[in-house]
């Protein structure tokens, strides 16, 4: 599948970088862009020379291996929810972001998870639940335990972060990177039959054509 996703297949050349697509999901103003910005440029809401903050890439070194993240930000407003499944195609990881000071955004994150489950079979993507804005602890509406419990029951990675104070941001992306690399290794050890991969690609293409057609 790695090839269909644009990631060069492992083993072709040892020096090359695997590219992983990560989608940022969450309702409006939970700090999706800020998290990505903090991770990519170590910055928080300052005027940047770049014009857009919606598509980012960053190379992450993980000990001996390194990988390239491609981060796709999505529009979080409620009205665009229905079209956002289009962003999921070919994603390797998803970051479900909610605001710990808003119970509503936590509910939305759960809704996003349902959407993801519709598009992907379990285990196909690495999903991480992130409670952002720990700097606003006194206004907290979602407890750490609530988040953790939900994440564990759905087999998600979990962390609480603060993009503003740069707390746990790099760690969160690092955890995803580690998980991705581990899965890649597991896959490498037992390569799927070639025919299967082709079939899967064909199915996905068919799905794609229908999707836009609607």
């Amino acid at each position: 599948m790695a090839q269909a996703n644009g990631a060069p297949q492992p083993g072709a050349a040892p020096s090359q970088l695997c590219v992983f697509k990560l989608v940022l999901l969450g309702s409006g103003s939970v700090g999706k862009s800020s998290l990505a910005l903090r991770f990519v440029k170590d910055d928080f809401k300052s005027i940047l020379p770049t014009v857009g903050c919606a598509f980012f890439t960053k190379v992450v070194e993980m000990g001996t291996a390194s990988l390239k993240f491609e981060i796709w930000d999505t529009a979080g407003q409620e009205k665009y929810h229905s079209v956002c499944h289009l962003y999921f195609r070919g994603a390797n990881a998803a970051l479900l972001v909610y605001d710990i000071t808003s119970k509503d955004s936590f509910g939305k994150a759960q809704q996003w998870l349902k959407d993801l489950e519709k598009e992907f079979s379990p285990g196909e993507v690495v999903v991480m639940l992130v409670g952002n804005k720990t700097d606003l602890g006194q206004e907290r509406e979602v407890t750490f335990e609530d988040g953790k419990e939900f994440a564990e029951s759905h087999n998600l990675l979990f962390m609480e972060t603060s993009a503003k104070l740069n707390h746990q941001v790099t760690e969160a992306f690092g955890a995803i990177a580690r998980e991705l690399l581990q899965r890649e290794e597991r896959k490498e050890n037992q390569p799927p039959p070639r025919g299967d991969a082709r079939l899967a690609l064909g199915q996905r293409l068919a799905g794609r054509a229908n999707c836009c057609a609607r």
Binding site: G6, K21, E70, Y87, C212
Partner: peptide, 20 residues
Amino acid sequence: PSRLMTGEDGYYFTNLCCAV
């Protein structure tokens, strides 16, 4: 397909699909 599902071009194209 690699250009459509990943990469900057793919991102903007996906946004166009969303817009439509």
